[in-house]
Nucleic acid binder design. Structure first.
Lengths: 197, 197
DNA sequence: ATGCCTATACCGTCCAGTCGGACGGTATTC
DNA sequence: GAATACCGTCCGACTGGACGGTATAGGCAT
């Protein structure tokens, strides 16, 4: 059965299985045996791809980072002017319709790291510092940018922990308000908001 | 050493030790043995007060809830008019100077529950629903209320996970903006904020 | 002496990580 | 173009330790 060169695909499926496991059973149930069973491998097979459990979780975190980075880049293309990064950040977290995006992988990686070994968050922390810097230099009031960022994170947190989950309609309105804020915070220019998002 | 009637105090110290342990070592290191060592008891001693580890964490969560509830009530006294609850919520999370309040116990309880057994969050979830309801009925635009809540949560999250921790000065300004929002969102009445809610 | 509190010793389970090896492609050699 | 050596992939049994929980006995205050 082992096919040469199938390593990357298997590795990918292990990562997905681990994320799904965290999402359905909780971070405490993330054991190598459980992942192995879910992905249809033996524990030895898992450990061939990830030498240690920590390295598995580290890979999940890398997954989080790269995926979010991709989303950011994608959403940056439709934006320009002051507050463009803040809006991209917002859209990378929330649909215009209020749906959370990338919930599964992102939350799974972070939850697993928090539960098992929070030091594994280090790569994410580094990236986050970059993003925060870009938010500060986004051409709008840094306090607005930080407000928007924290609101996006707070909505995500509420969803992951199932705390205070608002209705889609309300979240949609919150999203709109936040987008609005990123425009209001712009330095007093002609306020030409001619083109759409 | 065992003193009659010292049960409550011991129980309290166990809870504190558990919280401190989570804060310093991470949720994964929250074991009965570790708590016992930290508090200067044996594991048997711990288990006398908390029959099971889950019940210990459940008590930590109750701690979170009751403490936050107390903070809310305290901060409600200085507020009135539309948005008063939103402001109280905000102040219960953040100092006017931008410092996070109640970080240790609250974060410890929640982190432990997430790591060990997320079902233990249930009591918190119930309370949180109440709070969200009160925010919706706070006399201001519900979207603003929800925005403020999520921003407060997001700031808390960033601090706990050490993600994107902003400077005190910036947080202070974010706090001010959020308070401002709770006033702006008031329905277009004579702006007579004379009487209470 | 009674009841609350704590210690010691112990058990069973779970789980990360190790180890030797199996199986099947792939490259090499002739 | 076979025979052979090699490597990537994966398996399965095992181990050592950590950890939650139990049972039991002892101590201090009233």
């Amino acid at each position: 059965m082992p096919v040469r060169g199938s390593g990357q695909a298997t590795r990918r499926s292990v990562l997905d299985a681990a994320a799904a496991l965290v999402a359905t059973e909780g971070a405490a149930k993330l054991t190598l045996d459980a992942v192995a069973e879910r992905v249809g491998l033996s524990k030895g097979g898992i450990l061939h791809h990830f030498a240690t459990k920590d390295s598995l979780i580290a890979a999940m975190i890398e997954d989080v980072v790269s995926q979010f980075e991709g989303d950011l880049a994608r959403h940056m293309q439709g934006e320009n002017g002051p507050g463009s990064f803040a809006r991209a950040f917002l859209r990378a977290c929330l649909d215009p319709d209020g749906a959370l995006t990338r919930t599964l992988r992102v939350s799974a990686g972070i939850l697993a790291a928090v539960a098992i070994n929070s030091q594994l968050l280090a790569p994410l922390r580094r990236r986050y510092d970059d993003w925060r810097q870009r938010l500060e230099d986004d051409g709008i009031d840094p306090a607005i940018a930080e407000l928007v960022r924290s609101a996006a994170d707070g909505l995500w947190l509420g969803n992951v922990l199932e705390l205070g989950v608002a209705s889609m309609a309300l979240r949609k309105r919150v999203f709109a308000k936040l987008i609005e804020l990123t425009h209001l915070g712009a330095p007093s220019r002609p306020a030409g908001e001619s083109q759409a998002l």
